Amino acid sequence: MTPLAEVLPESALHDVIGLLVRLVEAAGALIIFIGAARAFVQFLRVLRAGMRGRGKVAEFNRIRLGLGRFLVLGLEFQLAGDVLRTAVAPSFAEVGQLAAIAGIRTALNYFLGREIAQERAEIEPDGQARGTSR
C-alpha cells in the first residue's frame, strides 16, 4: 500500500483528482478562448487598417501563428487533464480511451506545430523573431 493511499481513501482521492482535472481542463479552455479572442481582435484591426496585398497576407499569417501557439498550449493542458483523470486505479477502458485521446491530441499538436514552424519560416526567413511576442 502506498503512503498516499494510507492518508487518503480512494474515494477522496478520486474527488481531489476530479477537481484538479476540472481546473486543468478549464485552464486549457481559457487559454484557447483567450487566444481566439486575441486573434479575432487582431483580425478586426487588420480589416480596419484596410491593408492590401502581401502586407495583409503577412498580417493574417502572424495572426494564425499566434492563434496556433495558444491552441497548442491549450491542447497540452487538455491532455494533462486526461492524464490526471486516469491517475487513480484506471480501468482498461479508461486507459484505452486515454490512449485514443492522447493519440488524437498529439497528432493535432504535431500538425499545428508543423504549421506554426512553416508559417514562422515564411514570415521570418532569417529564423529570428521580429516583433512577435512569445
Rank of each mutant, 00 (worst) to 15 (best):
G81V: 00
S11C: 08
E94S: 12
V57A: 10
A26W: 06
A121G: 14
F77H: 04
Y110M: 12
V7F: 14
E76N: 09
E76P: 00
F43A: 10
R45S: 08
L108S: 02
L98G: 01
A129Y: 09
N61G: 02
V41F: 05
R134V: 09
L4I: 15
V21I: 08
R45Y: 05
R85V: 02
G68C: 02
I31H: 00
L73W: 01
Q42M: 13
L71E: 04
L67W: 03
I123P: 00
V21L: 04
D126P: 01
A58K: 05
T2N: 15
G18A: 12
A129Q: 15
T86G: 06
L47Q: 10
R69K: 08
I123G: 02
A121C: 10
N61K: 07
L67F: 10
T132H: 07
V21A: 03
V7M: 14
T2V: 12
Q118G: 02
A100W: 06
R54Q: 13
T106E: 08
L108D: 01
G18Q: 14
F92V: 13
P3T: 10
I32C: 10
I32S: 09
V57T: 14
E59W: 05
G18W: 12
L79M: 11
V21T: 05
G81D: 01
L67N: 00
L30E: 08
G28E: 02
R69L: 04
D15H: 14
R114H: 07
L20N: 09
L13D: 05
I31R: 00
G127I: 00
A58L: 11
Q118H: 07
V72D: 03
G81Y: 00
V16M: 14
A107Q: 11
Q97G: 12
G81A: 04
A37L: 15
N61F: 03
N109I: 14
L20G: 10
Q78W: 07
A49V: 03
A26F: 07
V7G: 06
R130S: 08
R22Y: 06
V46E: 03
M1T: 12
E122M: 11
A107V: 12
A5I: 10
I34P: 01
I34L: 13
E124R: 00
V24H: 04
P90I: 07
L19F: 12
N109D: 12
I34Q: 05
R52H: 10
R62E: 04
G55H: 07
L75C: 13
G68T: 02
Q128V: 14
V57F: 06
G74M: 01
A89Y: 10
